[in-house]
Amino acid sequence: MTASATVLLDVDGTLIDSFPGIREGFVRALKSVGHPLPDDEFIARIPGPPMRDSMYAAGLNGDEVARAMLVYSEYMSGEGWRRFTVFDGMLELIEGWKADGLGVVTATSKSEHFARLALEETGMWPHLDFLGAANYDAGRITKIDVIRHVLDSVDPARPLMVGDRIHDFHGAAEFGIPSVAVTWGYGTPEEWAEATHIAHTPDELDEIVRNHVAAQ
C-alpha cells in the first residue's frame, strides 16, 4: 500500500453494535443442542472472539459446537446479520481518513461473508482498501491469524490497530503494532489497559490516528 499509515479496524464493537444479532444467534445455537445458557455477564462478552471459542468457553464439547454453529450460521445468514447499528461518527471518520490518504482496512474475527454484508449495509465498504476477516475453512480463525493475513496481503504502511477487546490488542502486539482501545464497544477497563492508547469518543480516536500519522 502507498498510504503513509494504515488503520486496521475491528468491526463488532468498534464500527458497529452487532450485539443484538450475535446474542440471539448464540442463544438459539445453545438451545438447539440442549445446553444451558451462561449468565448475562458471559453473554455480554461474546462479541469479538471467534464464536466457536465462546461456545467452547460456555462448556460445549466438539460435537455440540459443530451442531450449534450450524444453527448460529443459519440465523446469522437470515435476519441475524442485519441486527446492528453503526456507532456514531465511525462512517465519517473512515471517510475522512480515506480523503486524507490513509489506508483503511479491517481486521475482524467476523467471517468474511458476514463482515462484507454488514460493511456494505453501513456504507463503509467503498471506503475500505481490504477486507481482513476470519475464514474458518482457510484456517484463519484467531485475531492473530487475521492480522497476519492483512500484513501478508497488503503490507500496510505503519499500521495502527483499533478495536475494543483484548484479542485486538494482544493480536496487534504479536506483530509489534500499536493499538487503540475504543470504550464504546464490549471490552472492560482491564482489557483497554492492554492497548497502547484509549479513545473514549470518535474525536479522541481521530486525534490518536492523526498523531500516529504525524509521528512518522
Rank of each mutant, 00 (worst) to 15 (best):
P50E: 01
R82E: 15
G78F: 06
G59N: 04
K31Q: 15
S54T: 02
R23Q: 15
P38L: 05
P47T: 00
F84T: 05
H35S: 14
M90Q: 13
Y72S: 12
D88E: 14
E24Q: 14
M51F: 02
G62Q: 13
L30F: 06
P38S: 08
A68T: 04
G59T: 04
S77G: 10
F42R: 02
W81Y: 15
P50T: 02
G62I: 11
R82L: 15
H35R: 15
I43G: 00
D40P: 06
F84A: 07
F26P: 09
D39P: 08
M76I: 06
W81C: 13
L37C: 10
D63W: 10
M90W: 06
G25D: 05
V27C: 11
A57G: 02
R67W: 10
P50K: 01
S77V: 06
V33W: 05
S32F: 13
Y72H: 13
G62A: 15
S54D: 01
L37Y: 03
L30Y: 05
D40K: 10
E74R: 11
D88A: 10
P36Q: 08
V33S: 09
P50I: 02
G25V: 06
A44H: 11
L91W: 03
M69F: 02
E64I: 05
V27A: 10
D53E: 12
V86D: 10
V71H: 09
P38E: 04
M51G: 03
S32I: 09
E74H: 08
N61H: 05
F42Y: 07
R67L: 14
Y72W: 11
R28E: 12
S54M: 01
P49T: 02
E41K: 13
D88N: 11
A29R: 03
D53A: 12
A29I: 06
L60Q: 03
S77K: 08
F87C: 08
G78M: 11
G25T: 07
G59H: 03
V86A: 14
G62F: 12
Y72I: 14
L30D: 08
F42H: 03
G78R: 07
K31A: 15
P36I: 05
P50W: 01
M90E: 08
G34T: 15
T85C: 07
L37R: 05
Y75E: 09
E92Q: 09
E79H: 08
K31W: 10
G25R: 05
G80P: 09
L91C: 13
H35G: 11
N61R: 05
S77W: 08
Y56Q: 04
T85S: 13
R23L: 15
V65I: 03
K31Y: 11
P49V: 02
P38G: 06
Y75A: 09
I43Y: 00
F26T: 14
